[in-house]
Design a protein around this nucleic acid. Structure first.
Lengths: 193, 193
DNA sequence: CCACAAAGGTCAAGACCTGAACCATTCAGA
DNA sequence: TCTGAATGGTTCAGGTCTTGACCTTTGTGG
C-alpha cells in the first residue's frame, strides 16, 4: 500500500491546515488535504491523476530536451515519422487518426517535412481531396537517428522499475483508458510519443 | 464512412485496423515493430512511455473539457488555486516552485486571478522583490466548485481500476520518477493537475 | 444532370508555454 | 561601505496546439 519514507526535508507545509505531519512528498500532502477538506471527493482518484500528470510531464520534458540537441526532428514530428515508418504509404487522414493530432496541427508539420525531403506527397488515385504520404530514405534515416536518442532517455527512466513493474505499469495505464471507443473524438491518438 | 482500404500499398495497415482478430491496439503493434526493426532499442521502455503519454493525454483532454463548461476556472489556474488553497498565504516564488510552472507562464494567470478578486497580492515584509499571494473567500469558493467537477471526471476514469490497482498505479508512477532531486530544473512541479 | 450536404486540407485567431532579456532588489565578499 | 553576482517578477518573441472558418472535391438524392 503506502510506503513510509521519513527521509524528507521539503517542509513548506507550515501554512497547511493539516501541518506537522511526517511529510513525504507534496502529492502525499495534497492527497491528505483533499480527503480532509473535500469529503465528497475521491482522493485516491486524484492521487492517481496527480501522479500521472507529474510523471508524464517530468519524463516528457526530459525526452523533449534530448531531442532539442539534435535539431533535425522535433517532438511533434517524431510521432508522425514513427507512424509513417510503420505504415509508410499512408493517407493523410489516417495519419491524423492514428496520431490523434488535429489536422490543422498536422498540416504545417507535413509541409515542413516535405520541404526537407523526409517525406513525399502524392495525389491519391482514389480521392482527389486527400493525399498519400510516403517516407523517403532520408526520412527513415532521420527517424532512426532521433528515435535512438529518444529511446535512450526512455530507457533511462524505465530503469527505475523492474521489468515486471514496467509491464504492470503499462497494463494498468492501458486498462485505465480501456473504455475509450476506438474512434472517439478524444483529441488523442492511437500511438503517442 | 468506409473503413477498409484495400488499395493501400502498405499491407501493414490492415493489421492495425479494428477488424483484425489478433491485433489488440496500435501500441501492441508499435511495440512489436520497434523490437523487430530497432534491435538496439528498448521496446518495453517505449511501451511504458507510449502508454503513459496516451493515457495522460486522453484523460487530460477529458478533464479539461469538463472545466470548459464552467468558464470561471481554466486548467492552468486550477493547480494554482489548489496550491493556494493548501498553503494560502504563500510567497510568489514558492508558488512557482510547487506548481513547477515557469514564472513567465504564471505571471499572467496571477494577474488574471487578482483582477477577478480570487486572490490578493500583498508586499512581503521580508523581501521587497517578492509578493505574498493570499486566497480570498471568492477564490476558495471558485476552486471548490471547479475542483468538484474536475474530481468527478477523475473518478470516472479511476473507476476502470480496482482500488488496489489505483494504489499500485500511483506507486509505480511515483517510483518511475523517484530519482528526480526535489529542486531539479525539470520544469515540472511537486503537484500537478 | 444538378443542387447540397459531407469530408479533406488549409488558413486565421486565440490560448498557453518556453527561453531570453530587462529592471529592481538583495546578498556576499573585498 | 561598496561593488558585482544572484534572485524575483515582468515583458516580449517564438513555437505549438485548438477551434472555427473557408474552399475544393466527392457523393447522393431529386
Amino acid at each position: 500500500m503506502q510506503e513510509n519514507r521519513t527521509e524528507d526535508a521539503g517542509g513548506v507545509v507550515e501554512a497547511a491546515s493539516s501541518a506537522s505531519t511526517t511529510s513525504h512528498s507534496l502529492i502525499d500532502d495534497a492527497t491528505e488535504y483533499i480527503s480532509l477538506n473535500f469529503s465528497d471527493a475521491n482522493a485516491l482518484a486524484m492521487r492517481v491523476w496527480m501522479s500521472l500528470r507529474r510523471t508524464s510531464n517530468i519524463v516528457f520534458y526530459d525526452l523533449q530536451a534530448s531531442l532539442r540537441e539534435h535539431r533535425s526532428v522535433t517532438p511533434p514530428t517524431l510521432i508522425l515519422l514513427l507512424i509513417l515508418d510503420m505504415f509508410s504509404p499512408l493517407e493523410y487522414r489516417e495519419l491524423t487518426r492514428i496520431s490523434g493530432m488535429n489536422r490543422a496541427a498536422i498540416s504545417p508539420h507535413i509541409e515542413n517535412l516535405s520541404k526537407r525531403k523526409l517525406i513525399r506527397r502524392k495525389p491519391s488515385p482514389r480521392d482527389r481531396r486527400t493525399e498519400i504520404i510516403e517516407m523517403t530514405e532520408a526520412g527513415r534515416a532521420a527517424f532512426a537517428e532521433a528515435f535512438t536518442v529518444y529511446n535512450e532517455r526512455a530507457e533511462y527512466w524505465a530503469d527505475n522499475l523492474t521489468v515486471e513493474e514496467r509491464s504492470e505499469l503499462s497494463r494498468l495505464l492501458e486498462k485505465l483508458v480501456s473504455n475509450v471507443p476506438p474512434d472517439e473524438d478524444t483529441r488523442s491518438g492511437e500511438i503517442e510519443l
